[in-house]
Design a protein around this nucleic acid. Structure first.
Lengths: 132, 132
DNA sequence: AAAATAATTGCAACAGTATTGCAAAAAGAT
DNA sequence: ATCTTTTTGCAATACTGTTGCAATTATTTT
């Protein structure tokens, strides 16, 4: 974890390590609220800033879906400030409401005449393995 | 427009017609802020409620993307409260920041072993026709 | 066409989410 | 150990959205 921060030219602080630890303890994407609950005592503003920094540096990525759903998950690929590139899809279970980052073998190509496509994000909804 | 509201069992009111008119005047997806600006005098709470109702009834759909991007667009398919089904992708231009609902011929199939997929939403980012 | 009914609106108050500026504290470099 | 720069924590503020309730308006019934 310390190396991850250093590789992104971020200082290693207790706060950042605490937040990273929470991310690593969760397989699935988590909400800001969940982080708040698990942090114990903390400063909200610092948390928002930490999240923003992590997103900019490509440590975590944001997943948003209609209905004010907003979650965060660790990047597994090597992302950066400019572009997050994930070869996985975001799956939301309609039963347990968990959001999973799932790898797929053949990531579909999208072609649109006249449009230059730099990044594609795929979201799916349904029933997950555990709830099925 | 009146028939659209009636078909969804909603009362025809000036406010709703005004909001619908704004949607029809825009080819691309628009933000709540844009609607507010174009409405002239209005009540914000009523607008939020109108938007919520329209989404629930399948008149408009929400498009969300990382970075607190949230836009709204008319549904062209016949959507309903339970599920919005669009055979188009959402394209965001990195240059003009517009969000387009674009039809594609071959909407990709997504398969995930063990997961039941009910809906798929595809988002793309790049450079649009006009900006290219 | 008027009265009854039911949905919608507008206001007040409030809640949640997020940002900015700034001084103090902490991390990393010399 | 000291210096420099980043990060934190606090105060204040802004934005986005919601709830309850009374007044108004649209539709239905008579």
């Amino acid at each position: 974890m310390k190396n991850l921060l250093r590789s992104k030219k971020l200082r290693v602080t207790d706060f950042r390590l605490a937040v990273l630890t929470i991310f690593e303890q969760h397989k699935n994407a988590i909400s800001t609220e969940q982080i708040e609950n698990e942090l114990g005592e903390f400063d909200r503003i610092t948390l928002y800033r930490t999240i923003k920094t992590f997103i900019e540096k490509g440590i975590i990525h944001e997943i948003t879906m209609p209905g004010n759903i907003k979650k965060l998950a660790l990047c597994h690929d090597n992302c950066n400030a400019k572009e997050h590139q994930h070869q996985h899809i975001h799956f939301r279970c309609n039963s347990c409401a968990e959001i999973f980052c799932l790898d797929i073998d053949d990531y579909p190509e999208i072609n649109l005449k006249g449009y230059q496509i730099d990044a594609v994000e795929i979201q799916a909804k349904g029933i997950c393995k555990n709830c099925a």
